[in-house]
Each structure stands twice: as C-alpha cells, then as structure tokens.
C-alpha cells in the first residue's frame, strides 16, 4: 500500500513536469503548425538562466525573469529566423529548429562548461511537506505540482475565454480575415512562439534544480516531449495533459514490475527456452523495458489513431 501510494504520487509529479515541458510545444504546434525541435533547448536555457539569475539575486526573481527573457528570445527567433524560412515550407521550418537545437547544445557548454552547475532548490522550499507512512514528500515537489496545474488552468482560460485567445485561434484558421480586421497576424504568431518558449523556460527553471542542470539535459527530455505531444494529439492541450499523466504513471509503475515472459512459463517445461537467444529475450523484465514503453505507445498511437488522444481529425 505504501509502495502503491508513493509510486502514484511520484508518477503524478513526474507526469506534471512532463506536461509543463510539452505544453509550450503543443501550444506552438496548435497555433502555428510548427514542430519546434528546439523546445527542449529552451528548457535547458531556462535552467541555466535561472541558475545565473538566482545566484545573483535569488530564486524568486529568477522564476519570473528567466521565462520572460526566454520568451523574448523566442519571439526574436521567430521574427528573424523562422519567418525567413517560412516561405520554404514546413520542412525548412522544422530543419531550422533542428539547427537551433544543435547550436544551443554546443553554446551552453561553451558558456557554462561541461560540468553540472550548482543550481539548488531555494531554502524556503527545502523541507518536507508531509510524510506518507515513512516516505516524505518534499515541498518542492508540491510546488512543481502547483505551478504545473496553474499553468494548465491559465493557458486554458486565456485561450478559450479571453479576447486575445480568440484572435489567436482565428488567426490560425483565417489569417486573411483576421488581418483584414486590423490585427497584425505575424505579430500574433511571434507572440505565440514567445509564450511557448517562455513556458519551456519556466519548466527549465523548475526542473533544473529538481534534477540536474547540465548540457545534456535537453537531449535527455527532447524526444519524450514529442511523445507526449503526439500521443495527446498534436495541438491539443487537454490531450497533452492526459498523456503526460498517463505516461508519467505508467513509467513509474513499470519500474516496479519485475516480471518477465519466462516467469509466465515458470514451472512448465517449454522447449523454446532451451534456445539461448530466446531465453535471454524471455528473461528481460518489464522494468528493463520501461524506457521503450513511451515510444512504443507513440508508434502504436500514430498507426492506429494518428490524431492522438484528443486531436481533431485532419
């Protein structure tokens, strides 16, 4: 019971961090149709900026400033990079973001070195929130949960209820119309891209000290973020939210499953198991397979339901 509850909590908080990461990606894709391969790079930059700012003036200002700076950087990137390649089509846009990701991955160690930097959890949040049986639940995890849920609610409200949200949605489907109504459509896209990268930055500020801030952190989450966005349905925030939680929980629990195919046949003499290769295949445990699961889910989803959990049909 204790194990089940702690694992559930762990799965939830991991899933919510994944959501924080993928929400920006989903936002950009749903509004602009651009798959931003550099998304995880902005997550990494968020962590490094937060480290730099927090070591000068503290964590709380960093929590606000770092995402803002990244949002601005993202907006500039859209204005002077993405918009230039837009005319060459979606493939060119995608490749541009791939290039940005490659560059960031090299520039970060250039500035901050290859070692992990000491970006620590703020003192105010470094305590135990509550104890579940004998397992303590750190306050910082609670803070992560709070920010993630807050982000979800805010995004949802802004997009569906506010005026600017309506303009954004309209600009996607009827750009000429929105332009004719006097709105600056390119600027709307710039804004969306900026908000998307700011969200990635925020995830970096929060994830950077919960885990480790180092040059490989972008590569580590890069593809899992795509899995969430795809499984949830490209462009669907609700879908991304559900997919993050489901994948977070599945991954956490699959660690605990020490079963393998050979356990299934234990006791009975199966002739197949005399073969060396098959035996080693059968003795792989589910817990070892854990890293493959998200990609398997993604591929199956794309084959059988390409629009994802909550995506609209094309």
């Amino acid at each position: 019971m204790e194990f089940f509850l702690t694992s559930l909590l762990n799965g939830l908080s991991y899933g919510l961090l994944l959501f924080m990461l993928s929400s920006g990606l989903t936002l950009i894709f749903s509004m602009m149709g651009v798959l931003n391969f550099a998304h995880a790079s902005f997550y990494m930059l968020g962590a490094y900026f937060a480290y730099q700012i927090s070591s000068a003036i503290g964590f709380w200002p960093a929590l606000v400033i770092a995402p803002l700076v990244l949002g601005l950087a993202g907006a500039l990137l859209e204005r002077y990079g993405l918009r230039t390649v837009h005319k060459s089509g979606h493939v060119a846009e995608l490749l541009f973001t791939v290039g940005v990701a490659l560059l960031v991955e090299e520039i970060v160690p250039l500035i901050w070195g290859r070692m992990a930097v000491k970006y620590a959890i703020p003192r105010e949040l470094d305590f135990t929130l509550f104890s579940l049986f004998s397992t303590s639940f750190p306050a910082y995890r609670g803070f992560m949960l709070l920010v993630s849920v807050g982000m979800m609610v805010l995004l949802y409200v802004v997009l569906t209820r506010s005026r600017i949200g309506l303009i954004i949605q309209a600009a996607l489907t009827h750009p000429e119309m929105v332009g004719a109504l006097g709105h600056n459509v390119p600027r709307v896209f710039m804004l969306v891209f900026g908000v998307g990268t700011a969200l990635a930055g925020l995830a970096g500020v929060i994830g950077g000290n919960a885990f480790v801030t180092e040059p490989s952190m972008a590569a580590a989450v890069g593809s899992i973020v795509f899995v969430i966005a795809v499984v949830g349905g490209l462009g669907s925030l609700e879908g991304a939210f559900i997919a993050s939680l489901v994948l977070g929980i599945i991954q956490t629990f699959s660690v605990a499953l020490d079963y393998s195919l050979s356990d299934l046949f234990a006791g009975s003499e199966v002739a197949l198991l005399h073969d060396e290769a098959l035996r080693s295949l059968f003795s792989i445990r589910i817990s070892q397979m854990a890293p493959m699961i998200p990609y398997l889910v993604m591929v199956l989803m794309l084959i059988f339901r390409p629009q994802g959990l909550m995506g609209k049909r094309e």
């Binding site: 798959l35 990609y295 591929v299 390409p306």
Partner: peptide, 29 residues
Amino acid sequence: ASTKRAGTVFAMISLGIGELMAAGSTVLP
C-alpha cells in the same frame, strides 16, 4: 506503418521507430 501518411506524421512515426529501436537495442539480445 509509417508511409500511410506523409508530412509531419511520417516524420514523427520515423522518430518514434528510431527511438524505439535505439532504446530496444540496449535491452534486447
């Protein structure tokens, strides 16, 4: 499976299959 669609969906499936094989190669015999 992957060529049913072109464009972004194809790119994503190919990424998924690639990552799946990469992750699988560390575990599978």
